[in-house]
Design a protein around this nucleic acid. Structure first.
Length: 423
RNA sequence: GAGGGUGUGGCGAAGUGGUCAACGCGCCUGACUGUGGCUCAGGUAAUCGCGGGUUCAAAUCCCGUCACUCUCCCCA
């Protein structure tokens, strides 16, 4: 029996030409390093939380009415009868950890980032996996619009650093829970008589999560929605002022955005600012998104604390980079590959290899015992800068032949000077 | 949840009823007894997704099944 990876998952392999970019571990290292670096610049520190959390945490914080929780979570019960859920997004777990560890007592503002897998039980397709990876950041303890702008700038800065263009930032505000309650009331009143004309999906949403009716992509719904009440009419003054300030900061930072009054994201915990970043080359598919969630920390048992953050789908970043034709960075190889000729040289190479490595030289040696040609090919495959050839002649004189793999120039180097010659 | 498409060596991919299932890449061997990325020659590797049926004969036709993939929905 041969096993395939489970549906919607894939293996990430050492440099695998001919395979999908998402399967290339070197690209993941590059992506992750890039994200870590920009987070460091913005003053964010890494947090790592479990990939599963209690069923209730995930379901309550993301929202029972959301698609993600209603039909896409991996839920399971342990032998100890604990109901758990594989995390479908990053924020809930980070908030839980923030409260569990009372990080709010350490400093007034916490800036956290994370990178890791998330799980959603969906039919896989291009750019959509059951296990996908997100990089995200959360800014906790700051309620001002500067925080919103910074978080959006961080997300955009990450894409820019990678060389991604053709992006759109969609921006909206969903106001406070109070104003939203009023609005949803009005929306439902408006929608009720129209339900027979609306899609089945929006009928479901009407019952479970009326706000998301706005987000429908069905033509019949879109036509009807033109007459729907507008959320902005229900916003209180403070919410409007906050949104105006966020927009103005973005403009100041030179970050273009599209205001989209119908943007409603898939999590219930959002308040005020919500945003989504779309990629033109992926047909405006979302590359990432986020928003403010001022009630969430309180909802998971912490002190009332404002927060804002985002999550970015890394598979989609790779797809978009590929689609855009951005050149992926070259991976760096070994400094040296040792090629022993004969048994005596092989024995000598084992200790030479150990010595070079202890001196900090990235190196490897041939383990096949095959011909010189094959050894040099391996040096080539490993992108070694130098091949170090050691045969009986060299051994007798205590030297090695160092071959520059690019120029083919060779020189004889005493073994004790080897590490200096390999730079 | 709905609808398409595809399953042939490690990868890509011909073949649509009839001798030992092309070819390309990779890998291996040699030309080149201690010198790679080129070339040439040879070689390795496939019970044609699985099960059943039709037929003298099936990768090819029929039924079933599984897997993968794409689109819509939704999302990252």
């Amino acid at each position: 029996m041969r096993y395939a990876p489970p549906k919607g998952t894939y293996d990430i392999l050492p440099s695998a030409p001919g395979r999908d970019a998402v399967q290339n571990s070197a690209l993941w290292q590059w992506l992750e390093a890039s994200f870590r670096e920009i987070c460091r610049q913005y003053g964010y520190a890494e947090i790592r939380t479990p990939i599963f959390e209690s069923h209730d945490l995930i379901h309550r914080s993301v929202g029972e009415g959301t698609d993600i929780v209603a039909k896409e979570t991996f839920d399971f019960v342990t032998k100890g009868n604990d109901a758990l859920t594989l995390r479908p997004e990053g924020t809930a777990g980070v908030m839980r950890a923030y409260v569990s560890n009372r990080l709010y007592t350490e400093r007034p503002v916490s800036k956290l980032y994370y990178i890791g897998p998330n799980f959603r039980y969906e039919r896989p397709q291009k750019g959509r996996y059951r296990q996908h990876h997100q990089a995200g950041a959360e800014l906790l303890g700051a309620s001002g619009p500067e925080a919103d702008a910074e978080v959006i700038a961080l997300a955009c800065g990450f894409y820019a650093r990678l060389g991604l263009t053709d992006l759109k930032v969609k921006l909206n505000t969903v106001g406070t829970p109070e104003s939203r309650v009023e609005y949803v009331k009005a929306l439902r009143a408006w929608a009720e008589p129209l339900l027979p004309q609306m899609s089945g999906e929006n009928n479901r949403r009407f019952a479970q999560n009326a706000l998301r009716m706005l987000d429908s992509k069905e033509p019949q719904d879109i036509a009807l929605l033109v007459t729907a009440p507008s959320l902005s009419d229900y916003l209180d003054e403070a919410s409007q002022a906050h949104f105006t300030a966020v927009k103005s900061y973005l403009t100041t930072m030179g970050l273009p955005y599209d205001e989209d009054p119908r943007l409603v994201r898939g999590f219930d915990y959002y308040t005020h600012t919500v945003f989504e970043i779309q990629s033109g080359v992926l047909g405006d598919k979302a590359l990432g998104g986020g928003g403010r969630y001022n009630g969430l920390i309180e909802a998971v048992g912490g002190p009332a604390t404002p927060g804002i953050g985002f999550g970015l789908g890394l598979e989609r970043v790779l797809l978009a980079l590929e689609e855009t034709g951005v050149a992926f960075p070259k991976t760096s190889g070994l400094a040296a590959f040792l090629c022993p000729l004969g048994e005596a040289a092989r024995v000598a190479c084992v200790s030479l290899l150990a010595r070079l490595r202890s001196e900090g030289v990235a190196c490897d040696m041939d383990y096949t015992g095959r011909r010189m040609k094959v050894m040099l090919e391996q040096a080539d495959q490993n992108q070694a800068r130098f091949a170090v050839i050691l045969g009986d002649d060299e051994l007798a004189q205590g030297v090695a032949t160092v071959r520059d793999m690019l120029t083919k120039a060779q020189e004889t180097v005493p073994l004790e000077n080897l590490s200096k010659a390999l730079v």
